[in-house]
Amino acid sequence: MASNHFQNNASASTLSGPPSTGDYITDSVFRAVALTCASLLILLLAYILWEIGGKALPAFKEQGLGFITGTTWNVNEGQFGVLPEIWGTLYSSLLALIIGGIFGVTIAIFLTQDFLGNRFAAVFRTIVELLAAIPSVVFGLWGIYVLIPLLRPAADWLHEHLGFIPLFGTELSGPGLAPAALVLAIMILPTVAAISVDAFRRIPYKVKEAAFGMGTTRWEAILKVMLPTASSGLLAALVLGFGRALGETMALAMLIGNNNQISLSLFAPADTLASLLASNFPEAGAVEVQALMYAAMVLLVITFVVNVIGLAVQQYTMRKFEGKK
């Protein structure tokens, strides 16, 4: 294995030599282990898809694509449509992404760009990361008992004075999009913040030096240099946060109102795919389970498409800003 063609050519005193047979074996073993782990993961994913797909197949044959464009969910008449849930999933996640994204990136800037002392920044970072440890159901309860009453005065005022804007078109019904999106935003905040912090930390010191050397103020350095430099990492943070928001179940099932309607209003109740699954499974009959499996497939496809788009945008920014092929 470890053949050395240079042995005879090298000068007698050189200390250089080829890797030993053991080194080569370790190399192959490592590669084999890594490959096995990676393929197991892919197999697992394929298996899950296969299982869910198989269970969803009858519903797919029955409903066809009408399932995606339909707006009623009526078990007795065998009518199943998830357009309102698709809308609710995307709308609530997008709102959460905007709010959580802005806060998450801002927090990352504060934590990494010398606004806080090192020790204080570490404490603050731990607090943000602790948010990730709070169970979803606690967020749900907090939303019902604290957030919704808190939102009510503002929501009433907005509806009364700015009701002509579709966003504020209805009265706050209690559970609805606004509380759900806000809680989602808080839930994705730690993810977005932690990954953004890493993106900013990865920027070499010389970049900061270059920015200040050009005579930028602190904010100019952050907005015009640090942000574009960190952009691919920030995008990764946003994509991951969005993915989490799409799939979040428990808190949403408690807060979104579970009402399959399509409305632009922030205060109207809505529904998401994940919370549809969670609320309907326990009492579903055989036919409804098939429909729910179909809905699960739709959610998977949405998550997949979002991730692919995210990856494409990330590749694009990497090419554009960092010159990577």
Binding site: K206, V207, E209, A211, G213, G215, T216, P228, S231, G323
Partner: peptide
């Protein structure tokens, strides 16, 4: 110091272009 650096420019020992075009 921002004003100082606008009048007194600098080229660094290590190349440090920005991640932009």
């Amino acid at each position: 110091p921002v004003v100082v650096r606008r009048y007194i420019g600098m080229v660094f020992q290590q190349p440090n272009p920005f991640s932009m075009s």
